[in-house]
Design a binder for these strands. Structure first.
Length: 895
RNA sequence: GGGCGCUUAGCUCAGUUGGUUAGAGCGUCUGGUUUACACCCAGAAGGUCAUAAGUUCGACUCUUAUAGCGCCCACCA
């Protein structure tokens, strides 16, 4: 074995061996309890980033742990077609690489083929990068959101919802991404604060109102060319006499509109002039207001802005102007006409597309929607709406969210959920499975898996929101592709006849970043409860975002702060990355990552490597070729101590992982290996009482316990361990052995050694200098006597005196631990004055401590209210401290 | 505007039913080469747990307020 572990030399080979051995494969025929994770599918054309790395590290830990525990484990990998994102990438490529000015002019089929080609070419990248992280997922079950079987599920769910009247087509004001030329769902719109201007101008003249002119404030004056109402608060005294009246308004440019004054409670009389110009076709609230007052409003809404963000032909003199041009023109006209009352700067919220980062225009369009309020689903015997079912599964704790504060965030979102616009005007994705046929006499609509018989059917041009197919991910991936091919089977039969679905759904845990709780988590709950009558997952584990050391978002454009996981794997190994992603971060909280952190965990893998090298060296020296059997009747104090620690560690680690406390558990293992096993047990094994079987046993279990966290290095070392034929990935997970060990004896020894080392350090005794030490303890005499060789060696002692009691040496450095008195009597080596000061300080501390304990214990209320264990514990502490104080005082007097 | 989170050693962070003299890693300082490891070993320094009040025998932990930082949701035009 090399002196230092070089991850690069081993990782790819190990991964290959695992994969070829079939260790990742799940068996739907198994009798074992199942444990399933659906891997959140990265974009098919993506490259591995830190978000993927955290996801893969966490999920692989969970998966490997359960696999070793004997669950039938399925971790299903896959990729997402990422509709808008992918189409854009390809369009840009065609423009840049092939000089095609407008790739859409290629036509639908050709462009989609180009995209398919691009996806097929780049899908391999992310696959191999997932492997680099060590992810032990079942590649034979890999799925892609555009697979045939998934496509069928998409169409089936669409049809089912359509038949249940949960999906409808209607003309609504939708979020229109002008740059990408498509609609967006509400949660795909981001809000950005921007300084804008609130224009206040004369809308109705004094003559029209019969009193003061009516002023209206707006940040988008150009839309006022399409108003059909003015809304005021019903109780607003200023406008009472106008409510219900109609007015013809002639704008300075000559355009005329007719507006009705309506009263609506949504109007805030305090804001602006308390009067709002209602533009139904270019604002969702205005649209809703129009719907509410449709009966009263005389004029029809006017379409002002078109899909390109330009003014329509409906507005004379403005045709073809951009929104900004129109605004400037209109404002100019108002000013010249003397109608502009004021222009105030204020902070307004801009709607921005999360995809294009460009402004979103509300415009009216005929689109497909999912009705979230219609009661159409049976959930646990109750008729519910999609929204109610989404609420119920969390409220009833069918699904648990970690950390639980995200439940509140989830509820807030669901409570305010509106119908989901699912149609997109792009070509890449699942095309809406609806066909239309029109002739002079009739118009037909067909919804189904394929075009109906007969001529003249044309499929809907739009595709589905990419999250529609993602919403089915936990189960559409489990539908047997052969069964999905059989169109004679009903949708319910697809589920009931697919062995994987039966065995592995619902999944146990959905682990993903909290940033997609709405896009994805909520949508999976929505679609899966509806379509399968099952929850998609039992637990949601939300990890935080990875940030730079300064707490900023990492961006690819800034290579200074942006860490590329692939570079780090190359440099430090996947194991080190995994630990750095997982230790010291808690669910739902962002973590900062920097190279030194990864380096630290690389050091840890190297520590394991060297500890193993040490043990393996001894085994080899002693010609051990098979696993030695531990002789439990013949254990040293050190053996008992480490076996006890091992039992505790096994329990804590197993419990911790079962509760998904990944960070804490990793920390426990880190400490156990480094502080207990290496610093003490291995050091003690360098003495005269080496126990081969226990060394082997401890190392073996350490490798098993660490394997889920750092699979590569543990597997490499495992292959060197004599007597193990099977790969570590398949090994059984340990249980505590149930034995009682005497760990206290060695604990005393350790305390004594630590104390002597500290005294040496404080008195500046050279490490090479061996010293004389006297130790007195009646109670622990045997413990010390039995381990004196180790004390001599590890504390570097020349003459050791251990006695039940003895002369309190003067002029010595002294300490008391666990009632054991320690003297280092070398005159000349110990600075008496310094030692006096030190002892005095320690006595002072101890007296303060005792005073506090005294006060606590003499307080009647404490004795009355505190549990007995606590009181007893405090009493024990007090007597221990008093004992120590007495001895220290004595020692001080002796100096 | 509504909601959430964070504030603990110089830095990055743990601390889950309130009960140790508050922990780790990195960094710093003092020393080191012993049957693995300098990607290492031994030791040390460093904290009014943001601030203030409250509940309690007891608060880093619970309550309330305040401040700073961050995030999410929301079309007061």
């Amino acid at each position: 074995m090399d002196k230092a572990y070089e991850a690069k030399k081993y990782e790819d080979d190990i991964y290959k061996k695992w994969e070829e051995s079939g260790a990742f494969k799940a068996d739907s025929d198994s009798d074992k309890e199942s444990f399933t994770i659906s891997m959140p599918p990265p974009n098919a054309t993506g490259v591995l980033h830190l978000g993927h790395s955290v996801m893969l590290a966490l999920e692989d830990i969970m998966i490997r742990h359960r696999r070793m525990k004997g669950y039938e484990v399925l971790w299903l990998p896959g990729t997402d077609h990422a509709a808008i994102a992918t189409e854009n990438v390809v369009i840009r490529k065609l423009k840049e690489d092939q000089g095609i000015e407008n790739p859409r002019s290629l036509g639908r089929k050709k462009l989609v083929d180009e995209i398919k080609k691009y996806v097929a070419n780049s899908q391999g990248t992310i696959r191999s990068q997932i492997r680099k992280m060590g992810a032990s997922c079942d590649w034979e079950r890999e799925r892609y959101t555009m697979d045939k079987s998934l496509h069928r599920c998409v169409n089936e769910v669409f049809k089912k919802m359509y038949d249940d009247e949960l999906i409808y087509r209607g003309e609504r004001v939708v979020n229109w991404d002008v740059a990408l030329q498509t609609t967006l769902a509400d949660d795909e719109v981001e809000h950005e604060e921007k300084e804008g201007i609130l224009y206040t101008f004369e809308y109705l003249t004094a003559k029209q109102t019969g009193g003061e002119p009516l002023y209206v404030g707006t940040s988008r004056p150009e839309t006022k060319l399409g108003d059909n109402a003015i809304a005021v608060h019903p109780d607003d005294k200023r406008y009472q006499h106008l409510i219900g009246k109609n007015f013809d308004v002639e704008w300075p440019g000559g355009q005329t509109i007719n507006v009705t004054v309506i009263a609506d409670h949504d109007i805030d009389p305090e804001f602006g002039t308390g009067a709002l110009g209602v533009t139904p076709f270019h604002s969702k609230i205005d649209y809703d207001m129009w719907l509410r007052h449709r009966e009263d409003i005389k004029a029809k809404p006017i379409h002002v802005i078109d899909e390109n963000g330009k003014i329509t032909n409906n507005i004379k003199g403005y045709e073809g102007l951009t929104v900004i041009e129109a605004r400037n023109k209109f404002v100019g006209e108002l000013k010249s006409a003397g109608k502009m009352k004021s222009e105030e700067r204020y902070i307004q919220q801009m709607s921005i597309s999360y995809r294009s980062k460009m402004p979103v225009e509300p415009i009216p369009k005929l689109q497909w929607f999912i009705d979230v309020n219609k009661q159409a689903i049976d959930w646990k015997g109750k008729k519910m709406s999609l929204k109610e079912a989404m609420q119920a599964v969390i409220k009833d704790h069918d699904i648990r969210i970690i950390p639980d504060r995200f439940e509140k965030i989830y509820f807030h979102w669901v409570d305010n959920l509106q119908d989901w616009c699912i149609s997109r005007q792009i070509w890449w994705g699942h095309r809406i499975p609806v066909w239309y046929r029109q002739d002079e006499k009739s118009s037909d609509t067909h919804v189904g898996l394929e075009a109906p018989e007969g001529d003249g059917w044309k499929q809907d041009e739009d595709t589905l929101d990419t999250w529609f197919s993602s919403a089915l991910w936990t189960w559409s991936t489990l539908i047997d592709p052969d069964i999905a091919d059989d169109h004679s089977l009903s949708f319910d039969e697809l589920l009931s006849k697919s062995p994987d679905f039966i065995k592995f759904h619902p999944t146990q845990i959905m682990e993903t970043g909290y940033d997609i709780i709405f896009f994805w988590i909520a949508r999976m709950i929505l679609a899966t409860t509806y379509a399968t009558k099952q929850i998609p997952f039992e637990t949601v584990y939300l990890h935080g975002l990875i940030r730079t050391r300064e707490g900023k978002k990492m961006s690819k454009s800034d290579p200074e702060t942006c860490i590329d996981p692939l570079d780090m794997i190359e440099k430090y190994g996947a194991d080190a990355i995994r630990l750095s992603m997982v230790i010291g971060s808690t669910p739902g909280n962002d973590t900062r990552l920097y190279e030194e952190k990864i380096q630290g965990y690389r050091n840890f893998t190297n520590k394991l490597w060297n500890a193993s090298r040490f043990v393996l060296g001894i085994l080899e020296e002693k010609n051990v070729t098979d696993e030695p059997v531990v002789d439990y009747d013949n254990l040293t104090d050190a053996d008992q101590w480490i076996l006890n620690k091992l039992n505790e560690t096994i329990k804590d680690v197993d419990d911790g992982l079962m509760e998904y406390k990944i960070s804490e558990t990793g920390q426990i293992l880190y400490d156990f290996l480094w502080n207990d096993f290496c610093d003490w047990y291995l050091e003690l094994s360098k003495g005269d009482k080496q126990n081969l079987a226990v060394l082997y046993h401890a190392l073996k279990n350490i490798l098993i316990l660490l394997h889920p966290f750092i699979p590569f290095v543990t597997e490499v070392i495992w292959s060197q361990l004599p007597g193990q034929s099977e790969m570590l990935i398949r090994h059984d997970y340990p249980k505590p052995d149930g034995r009682k060990y005497n760990w206290k004896s060695l604990d005393n020894v350790i305390e004594v050694i630590k104390s002597i080392r500290r005294l040496r350090g404080e008195n500046k005794i050279e490490p090479a200098q061996k010293i004389a030490v006297n130790i007195y303890s009646a109670k622990h005499y045997d413990d010390l006597q039995n381990n004196q060789e180790d004390i001599i060696r590890l504390a570097r002692i020349s003459d050791l005196v251990i006695d039940k009691k003895g002369v309190k040496l003067s002029g010595a450095a002294t300490d008391v631990v666990n009632g054991i008195e320690i003297f280092i009597p070398l005159e000349g080596l110990v600075d008496t004055e310094k030692e006096k000061v030190r002892l005095g300080k320690e006595i002072g501390n101890l007296e303060g401590y005792i005073k506090g304990l005294d006060a606590k214990l003499s307080n009647d209320k404490f004795a009355k209210n505190a549990p007995k264990e606590v009181v007893d514990g405090e009493k024990a502490k007090l007597s221990e401290a008093e004992n120590k104080l007495e001895k220290l005082k004595e020692q001080l007097g002796n100096l």
